[in-house]
Nucleic acid binder design. Sequence first.
DNA 1: GATTAAAGGATAAAGATTATATTTTAAGTT
DNA 2: AACTTAAAATATAATCTTTATCCTTTAATC
Lengths: 133, 133
Amino acid sequence: MNNFTDELRRHNLKATPQRLAISSALHNYGHVSIDTLYEMMLGEFASISLATIYKNINIMLENSYIQEVKIPQNKTVYELTKSSHSHLVCVDCKSVEDVSVDVDEIVNKLNLDDTFLISKADLVISGVCKNCN
Amino acid sequence: MNNFTDELRRHNLKATPQRLAISSALHNYGHVSIDTLYEMMLGEFASISLATIYKNINIMLENSYIQEVKIPQNKTVYELTKSSHSHLVCVDCKSVEDVSVDVDEIVNKLNLDDTFLISKADLVISGVCKNCN
DNA sequence: GATTAAAGGATAAAGATTATATTTTAAGTT
DNA sequence: AACTTAAAATATAATCTTTATCCTTTAATC
């Protein structure tokens, strides 16, 4: 069961119908850009405002309910917050998928001889997915 | 000696004064956003057009003379193309510095049991730099 | 030095994001 | 269950950001 209502409230976000729909869209499609999200939402809320999308994406980011993923040469996509992982991006079809990589292991080696206090590490791997070759 | 003229031509780019200045700016400052680059350039070319900055950044990217670095929560910066490396970004002062990380090592492990053909891997490490803590 | 395709500059156009004002509503309270 | 209120949604304007267009200038070749 996906109780997005509770999950939203846990992040200090009111559970509005629009936010529940955004949650479902991110859950079902994994990684979605602002404009495809807007298109999706228009199906369910014919009169939704694009400003609503932006405002919600921004507050959801602030409250760590979602995460942004910046894609090389392409639009930023958003995903529901989950345990640490990296991303595979197809340069052909632009699809994004999660992949488990032990980034911490590599990053921790650096930390030893460095005064930089690491908080996170974002790894985006580009290439051609199995459907595109 | 920094012969940006030859380096530009090697990438099929005409060596104009504006492009030489962009080259110097990236070389001297390492990582620069569009608008700070524009401000820098205005010092040298009082009447330079912002469109010139954009057009040059785009063609320099296409010809791999420069690389983009997408920063979490912040503006994209650009750097001269050099050997593979990762980036440290300070969430406080926003400074960006290069760091040598053996990303290939980790990424190659994935390649084995995956049909995804990897072409590159971008790693951006966020945290607080030594000047900011 | 002459030729020409490419680049620069000025500005308009298009796209993306944020701000403002008003209406609506989720969530807590009575 | 209706009442209250701060927050959210909507519509739209305003503000960036980026690209396109048109005309002028120039780097590179001969």
